[in-house]
């Protein structure tokens, strides 16, 4: 529709730029795309930037279709403009995929750094959004994977976990990483796997690291079903209970202005917590 700066009534306001961290496979991309869709439904301008070399962050916002990635285009050597890499998905959500090498080749971390720098250069879409979500890979195995934070692009970090031991362990580790790079945490989100005392465990974990549980997303088959068809829950099943959960989470994120430096738990304490 050709939105430009002059049409943006909140030209002054800085967009809320968030990243959701968590163990691989825990549901970061599902959560990110549903939150993006929910915020778009609320009338916010939203952008999602997929930083996983698998390029699957925005797929459910685009009806199951893939878009060209920034790195693929850089590699092909063509001149790149905003229109080549920023695509509109469900309800106007702007979708970008960083892309990256095949598994086991090259350096995906460097890829993220190169791609987000390129994006910053060619696109102003982020500036006119209300919410920008960086969907980052779960394991922060090298500097490149925290580049969105390090380069000062991300203003709020969230951690996603279930009540299982390993995802909590990863979440705790991420908290350690965040405090190492002086980045506060804005909240913990639980994506449930239906394990015993799940909400209690994650809530306690969030409290003990100094943060809080801002949403408990129950495990619902419908999320899977929608994804299999290539859609978010917000688009395919807007009247479901789970859609309401995402809507509430979206509101919580948009209204949130509290973030704290967290302190990771000792391994022993973490184990106690999950027993």
């Amino acid at each position: 529709m050709g939105d430009d700066m002059s049409n943006n009534p909140n030209g002054q306001k800085k967009p809320k730029v968030i990243a959701i961290y968590g163990k691989g496979g825990i549901g970061k991309s599902s959560t990110a795309s549903n939150v993006a869709a929910a915020c778009a439904d609320e009338g916010y301008k939203v952008m999602i930037i997929g930083c996983d070399p698998k390029s699957d962050s925005s797929i459910t916002l685009l009806g199951g279709k893939r878009i060209p990635t920034i790195l693929d285009l850089i590699r092909s050597g063509v001149e790149i403009t905003e229109n080549d890499v920023v695509f509109e998905g469900y309800n106007g959500v702007k979708c970008v995929e960083v892309g990256g090498p095949e598994p086991g080749i090259g350096c995906a971390g460097r890829g993220i750094i190169v791609a987000i720098q390129k994006l910053k250069k060619i696109s102003t879409a982020q500036d006119i959004c209300d919410l920008v979500i960086y969907d980052v890979p779960g394991d922060i195995v090298c500097g490149g994977f925290v580049a969105p934070i390090r380069k000062g692009l991300v203003s709020e970090a969230y951690v996603l976990t279930s009540g299982e031991y390993m995802p909590l362990y990863a979440a705790n580790n991420i908290c350690r990483g965040l405090s190492k790079i002086n980045t506060p945490l804005s909240g913990v989100i639980c994506n449930a796997r239906n394990v015993s005392r799940e909400e209690e465990i994650v809530s306690k974990f969030a409290e003990e690291i100094g943060s809080e549980l801002i949403s408990f997303i129950p495990k619902e088959q419908i999320v899977q079903d929608c994804e299999r068809d290539g859609f978010s829950v917000m688009e395919k099943a807007p009247d479901s209970e789970i859609a309401q959960v995402y809507r509430n989470l979206a509101r919580a994120i948009m209204s949130r202005n509290r973030s704290v430096m967290v302190k990771a738990l000792e391994d022993e304490r973490l184990r106690e917590l999950t027993r």
Binding site: L71, R75, P101, I105, G106, A108, G111, V114
Partner: peptide, 10 residues
């Protein structure tokens, strides 16, 4: 170059 770093130089 930057592409080689990211995608490998095989």
């Amino acid at each position: 170059d930057e592409n080689g770093f990211v995608f490998g130089g095989h």
